[in-house]
Design a protein around this nucleic acid. Sequence first.
DNA 1: AATTCGATCAACCGCTCACCG
DNA 2: TCGGTGAGCGGTTGATCGAAT
Length: 405
Amino acid sequence: MGKGRAPCCAKVGLNKGSWTPEEDMRLVAYIQKYGHANWRALPKQAGLLRCGKSCRLRWINYLRPDLKRGNFSAEEEETVIKLHGLLGNKWSKIASCLPGRTDNEIKNVWNTHLKKRVSPSGGEEEHGAAGSNKNKKKKKKKAAGGAEEPLPSPTPSPSPSSSTTTTANCSSGDSGEQQSNTSKEADDDELDLENLEMMPMLDDDPITFGFDMLVDPVPAPYGPAVSAFASASRPTSPCASSTSPPPPPGCAPPGVDDLLVLPEIDIDQELWSIIDGNGDGGGDGGGSACAVSAETSAPCCQSNAPEPTTNGACATSHHGAAEEEGKEWWLEDLERELGLWGPVDVEDYHYQYPTGPHGLVANHPDPLPAMVDDPVSCYFQAGPASAVLQEPGYSVTSSSNLMGL
DNA sequence: AATTCGATCAACCGCTCACCG
DNA sequence: TCGGTGAGCGGTTGATCGAAT
């Protein structure tokens, strides 16, 4: 019960609100490399001005590589309805039966349309709790100014058309947050989920589901780019489980601290090491490229994983040709999602505006100034090799240079 | 074209649970 | 056994987008 503990974000100085692409990058890079054994310590070690809770949420609900994006398929909706009938608002449990979906997402979907469908009368009735007064007056109005600078929403909002498509790629035998389920799930609810003639999607082989999906040469439009990002660097990344211990105290991940002063970026190789997974110099042995998925889905490094390569990369076989073909795509996708996308002509900085499902990314701030001003953006756009980040005249390479591909 | 309104979803908050010393 | 700490869950909030007016 309340134990009166202060909110973890109570500390002043911590960022709140929307995540910036840079923050996403840092988080993904860090987790990919070191896993997330300790959420509380993670933000600090990763150089993020966020609380661990926030990081965790962001990772689970958005950055995780095995997330499905897009509308729920009819089967998924069916499943949610069915499970909700059995479990009530046990979103995490429901989510555990829907690979690639998060409790938050399911909760949102339920509250937005499934609930209406089930009881068109606007019915609450079931499982009282639910409610979540959507009836709240939406008196708010944009308040235009917005709390923070308008950042390109990393998520292309899926078109409102409901369901039926998109079950496509991603997703993995998730179990993603199967997390705590282990302990809790066991006892509670005498429900026999196994008898739920479990969802079609569960038929998907959790193992073959992993990262391969993410580098599908023809991924669903606007898929989780960040996920792709995570997976992309994986080929050269050492495998490890998410349980891989965080860098020991005295052994903060190289470059991470530097990240804190990113504006004057000097992290080049280090961050790239992290991202690359390869840098394993930073390896600290247990590096964890696959940690990204390891934690959640069948880690690519496990059963289905190819013989480990010398550097522990879980790359190769299943990241083979398709991956090669996919690289271009996910790179572009990633950049697009992060608002960094667009080949840049060094000469005149002609920028190709990011496009979303509906054309130009709405409200996307002119990326040019951002790129010039924001070394991080520049950094990710240009890659470490392009070094000169401070000056507007830095050399910019094609997007395929991202991550040194 | 401008404004309003409803829908959607990411993120936060508060609480509970589980683990560990 | 107890208390402290961290992780996870569920409910709620608020920003944003698109359709309607």
